[in-house]
Design a binder for these strands. Structure first.
Lengths: 218, 218
DNA sequence: CTCGGCGCTGAGAACGTGCTGAGGACGCCG
DNA sequence: CGGCGTCCTCAGCACGTTCTCAGCGCCGAG
């Protein structure tokens, strides 16, 4: 899931990015209204978190413009509760949901998930492929009932692969979702981590499909 | 879903009743501590929203009494942030979650929903994990039958962890529920308190899951 | 068979995360 | 007022994790 955060306060932006990445989202940040609008138009995001007070172009105007151009990206709006703007305005101009600062992180997450959920199926509690099991809540992985300890990055990678067993997944896609890296990042890092996983899970569990990507054996 | 709101300020009570009804809940209101206690005992509610400042009987006493009588109704506590009472105290006495006034209605709803989803009517009188025991009503903790004295904050933290043993809980979530902190608060405070707990409870009872959070060993 | 390119791996550097002790702010109580 | 306990901040340290890089092997095309 790819998210766009449009926020000019550096600390809040950084905190959001960190927190959401920890939840497994790929997060990009834009710091001004125009930059945000541009990213929203072309970035292929699944949702946008948008501050109202922005340099260059207000959040309201941004959403209005986007909607006028027939972009229907889900938008979660944030505003300082200083009375100048109010919630009704936010929803009026085309935002899908609305939070006033200061807000709780858990609430943000809940609302965000609600936005994204439209149509998306609920995740199963425990992923299982062959004799591999992965429990996201407990953050545990077992192979034939013996526990395997993984680092955060290894866990994220396996997690992603286990959601689409048997399918070939490209390095670019993995870079994008597991590392949320730019196009310029060297794909070698993926090879390195696939190597780590192979050592821990068994050699033939991850197949290489030359020129295409990797596949988790079912 | 039936809710009980115990709140003496007429305006707030009315607003809550109206808002929650609009969400599809059946809402009753009690205006004093004793009336609230009585309703909670006999009303068959799914959750209670409880102010701290009440005529006749404080919210703290109310929950404590209820828990002592083996009623495990989920309780969401509200307090004015006037310093007289502290958040940690709220979690101490057996409430399930806690909000300080002024709060956002959206936050209230989100927390309430989380409570109802969790909704454990079959809660044991005392939380027990391994040889650890925590009694929310009496605010006591024992480890292998010897009492451990905890400060309010330490107690609140352990309390939260013991409700989801074995699961990994992120620092952000802990900050949110135990400290009621914003996103920008430094997560170091969690590390510090985990350190305190480890000293008092034993080194390996709280596992660190690097890059993810903490887990209470089962 | 030969060659080019893709993928694999080990070594080690760079980085970040988490832990800890010291100490300051604050409120409470004698 | 002074001592005490709790809460929190901060800076330094240690160690695990992440990433880079270079060299090599292997696969497939021609």
């Amino acid at each position: 899931m790819r998210l766009l955060v449009v926020e000019d306060e550096a600390r809040l932006a950084a905190a959001l990015q960190r927190g959401l990445r920890a939840e497994g989202f790929a997060v990009d940040v834009a710091r001004t209204g125009p930059a945000g609008l541009d990213a929203a138009r072309h970035g292929g995001y699944d949702a946008m978190i948008l501050d109202v007070m922005l340099p260059g172009l207000s959040g309201y105007e941004l959403v209005r413009t986007l909607r006028a151009e027939q972009h229907w990206l889900p938008v979660l709006m944030l505003s300082a509760k200083d009375g100048e703007y109010d919630q009704a305005d936010g929803l009026d101009c085309g935002a899908d949901d609305y939070l006033t600062k200061p807000f709780s992180y858990v609430v943000l997450l809940a609302r965000l998930r609600a936005l994204l959920r439209r149509g998306a199926p609920e995740r199963p509690a425990v992923l299982a492929v062959g004799d591999l099991r992965l429990d996201p809540a407990r953050r545990r992985v077992t192979r034939a009932d013996t526990e395997v300890t993984l680092t955060a990055r290894e866990f994220a990678l396996l997690n992603y692969l286990m959601r689409r067993p048997g399918q070939v997944i490209s390095k670019i896609e993995l870079l994008d979702h597991v590392w949320n890296a730019s196009l310029e990042t060297a794909p070698n890092i993926v090879e390195v981590y696939v190597g780590y996983l192979r050592r821990k899970l068994g050699r033939d569990r991850l197949e290489t499909v030359r020129g295409a990507g990797y596949r988790l054996a079912t």
